[in-house]
Nucleic acid binder design. Structure first.
Lengths: 334, 334
DNA sequence: CTGACGCGGTTAAGCGATTCACTGATGCGG
DNA sequence: CCGCATCAGTGAATCGCTTAACCGCGTCAG
């Protein structure tokens, strides 16, 4: 029995077995020792309730079995889903996911990333953050960074899971066009303010090609603010016949706005989302949206991360996620 | 300039200033040194870009400025909200929140808690988990544990933020009773399976007092499964006139079920939730639910945690959160 | 027969901080 | 002018683990 409130240390196991601490250390990691002593050590360790101290281990070896996961904004419903899925996926692979939330503050992202790096996490998994900022390079060459999000950043990452935004945007706009819509408002999130914002370009291109008028309106994700913005859009002089939201939560704002103005989504105005959040199916009418395959994304991200950790130099592997339209009731013929 | 990919160490700062590492260590933490050398050290540290290595610090001092936050199940919408709020609150107080997700597996909770303890987090904040299990005692006397949830656990915690479930349940059932409902089904979550489940008792008592028939039905939180259970409830021979859900996501299942059966929530059946998730307001009809004041809960939890860390022995302080009914359109006269 | 090698282990040097115990100066009352 | 706190700073011992280097010994190819 170990003394209360005092963990058993490697040395104690060593003394118990009459071996050196080094031998015990090796033994417990199945290296370089005879089957016999390994067994002896294991038994003693179990008996004493020994578990290696991760902090000491991290200091000495520079490794942990943890993956740092950095969320740009955990308030965001989509990121919540993503984090949950990633955490689960990693846990299934016997690695702990340390989740840190930058709370929507881009400046904080880098600080937290450093914190994670200093914690000696084996890899860093970043969700919608902007790793092009100065300083990320330091992090990227200290440990593998895997990015999952919609912007292919220029930063040197070990892997990226990116959403094929062009395909998604094309699909939605073509869909709306097919339904006869010619005046579409596109609600884009303001939060992770990517500087170049390729998505905006895609919208422009698709709109031009299809011959429809697409107005881009930046909009905060927070429901109240989104609702306010949406109302302004719906009440505007040139109110669109359809609103395409770059995230489901923005779409919720449109629903709320419509309700306040006694408009009926799916009759007076069409709405399309972009995440397929579970709740979207429950709305009235159910939200037509784009499913990116959350669980595959998470699995892919986890896979990439693990691969990067295990040294298989994934040459900046990029996985492109294909969009799948989920046609439900919120978008109708114009 | 520091050599690339190699952080500056305490010793380097010491050498640069011609002081001992001890002096530098003290200086940087504003202890025991003259104003003059402190300034000198600070300048040198800044110049060399020195930042203390948290891992080494943790090993030597046993402290970090991090709070471990353990989520029972990050898939749960309510917990997602809670984690985001707590993370934000802690960050505002200049402490990092390390979030770990047990993924709904009660066995994992303890493992992760140990992991967090071994990371030397200054305190542990646990959301809906069951800290009565064997083994939690070890953790509780290694560091302060603050619990936030609805069951007042018997475990020795440094503080608890608990929801006044009795009050909430009374309020809802009285409300439904007032609307003329006499047959109510109560959907309770199966996931964090608290053994004694005081909530069930409260329901029984309130029902008895009010003279209404309340049937408890355990139900998974996951939307698909919840929908299935809800359908069974709604189609049953003795279908209730109202469904009281112990979480908003369960209520979403009822909405989905109703839609599938062409029932209209707020006309054919009344529904009441229990979280006030932001999305609930967007449903049609908007969900009548109970607001527990998420941000206050988070703030209170953070406050308690910080207090516990700073040694002010909060004698198992308990903060009770009062429920506030949000009457919206989903519950109507029977 | 000999030198190289593998095996099972040990020694000891870190990893990068914190902190206790101690040393010289200094300041000060007596 | 002396003894005694006080204060700034130093040395060295941790904290608990990893890992490179080394060592004696039996084996085996050459």
């Amino acid at each position: 029995m170990a003394r209360p409130n005092k963990r058993t240390t490697l040395r104690e196991v060593a003394e118990a077995t009459g071996l050196s601490t080094a031998a015990v250390s090796y033994a417990l990691r199945g290296k370089h020792v005879s089957k016999e002593t390994e067994e002896r050590v294991r038994r003693a360790a179990a008996e004493l309730g020994y578990e290696a101290d991760p902090i000491a281990r991290a200091l000495a070896s520079g490794r942990t079995s943890m993956v740092g996961v950095l969320a740009g904004d955990l308030q965001d419903l989509w990121q919540q889903q993503l984090m949950a899925a990633i955490g689960r996926e990693l846990l299934a692979g016997d690695r702990y996911a340390l989740i840190l939330d930058a709370g929507g503050d881009p400046d904080r992202e880098l600080v937290l990333a450093k914190q994670l790096r200093d914690q000696r996490v084996d890899a860093l998994l970043v969700s919608p953050v902007d790793p092009s900022a100065q300083g990320w390079a330091d992090i990227a060459d200290a440990l593998p960074v895997v990015a999952v999000g919609d912007s292919l950043s220029r930063a040197r990452t070990a892997g990226q899971v990116i959403f094929d935004n062009r395909a998604g945007i094309d699909a939605v706009l073509e869909y709306l066009h097919g339904l006869g819509h010619r005046r579409v408002t596109v609600l884009t999130p303001t939060r992770p303010s990517t500087p170049d914002r390729p998505a905006d370009v895609y919208v422009g291109e698709a709109a031009g090609r299809l011959g429809l008028r697409a107005e881009l309106v930046p909009c905060p994700q927070e429901l109240g603010e989104a609702t306010a913005v949406a109302r302004r859009v719906l009440q505007g002089a040139h109110a669109p016949t359809a609103v395409f939201c770059f995230s489901d939560s923005l779409a919720y704002g449109v629903y709320a706005a419509a309700a306040e103005d006694s408009l009926e989504v799916g009759r007076d105005v069409s709405v399309v989302g972009f995440d397929d959040h579970p709740v979207s199916r429950v709305l009235t009418p159910p939200l037509t949206t784009v499913d990116w395959g959350l669980s595959e994304i998470a699995a892919e991200a986890a896979r990439l991360t693990v691969a990067a950790i295990e040294g298989r130099r994934v040459r900046r592997k990029r996985v492109l996620c294909a969009p799948r339209m989920r046609e439900r009731g919120s978008a109708v013929r114009a």
